[in-house]
Amino acid sequence: MNKIPNRQAICDVLMEKAKDDRDIVVLCSDSRGSASLAPFAAEYPAQFVEVGIAEQDLVGIAAGLAACGKKAFVASPACFLSTRSYEQAKVDCAYSDTNVKLIGISGGISYGALGMSHHSAQDIAAMSAIPNMRVYLPSDRHQTKKLVEALLQDEKCAYIRVGRNPVADIYEEENCPFELNKATVLCEGTDVAIIACGEMVKPALDAAELLKEKGITATVLDMYCIKPIDQDAIIRAAENARAVLTVEEHAPFGGLGSMVSQILAEHCPKKVKNLTLPDAPVVTGTSAQVFAHYHLDAEGIAAAAEAIL
């Protein structure tokens, strides 16, 4: 089992690129440790800005740096970054069109037992609703690396959510197909299309294996790009399937499931089931326990797929 969390992969890319790019600046809100960015702060102190526990200031400062030519990477717990500094994300980043990459760490219910204050089950909905804001939930460390490398090439803002814990590899270092804003097709089938993002991609892929044993074939899409979402890939997958299942570590309204349902209702009406967290504070537990509780694991996903066919 891989022991490198996606946040570590982000630090590795930034450390590597900062060698030759003095304009890369990393900002934290007393969060360098939890963001795995302490090595960056130690290696590049002149390109690291500690803001303290002040998320509004954090994102405003990042936007000011970006307006003066810096490539600002903000890393702060997703629960705070996507709510406390929401207006700065909207006005200073998206509306002012500044090159700020907002990295929501320990996203979703990563801080399992810490309670709803520390969960970010609303961040996809919130960030996606902002015009000019892009939203990404990479699924493993290799894809995270590719994503950050790609985002370093542009000058637009984006929100990237990663979880706290290491997640199993889906891709390999030398075999990680990636095209920015295009979903990755992990397998293809004709019975059900499973569209997942972030940490839900691996259990979705495992569910496809379980379904295969029962003679059910599934397409699995890694929809790491929530916005702009890969509409063509969704329609293509739905056209070839009898039903569609979405899986996400997010509240039921305004996330991946809502978006997929919206697109399919217009372009390819199909039976769609959204697997999500509840519209309620989640049960106390580790990530794995919480996922299992809400059937967001391979067995639960497979069962849901079977049920809608």
Partner: peptide, 9 residues
């Protein structure tokens, strides 16, 4: 805050 960022840059 935005101006703090500009001044830091």
């Amino acid at each position: 805050p935005v101006c703090v960022g500009m001044a830091l840059a």
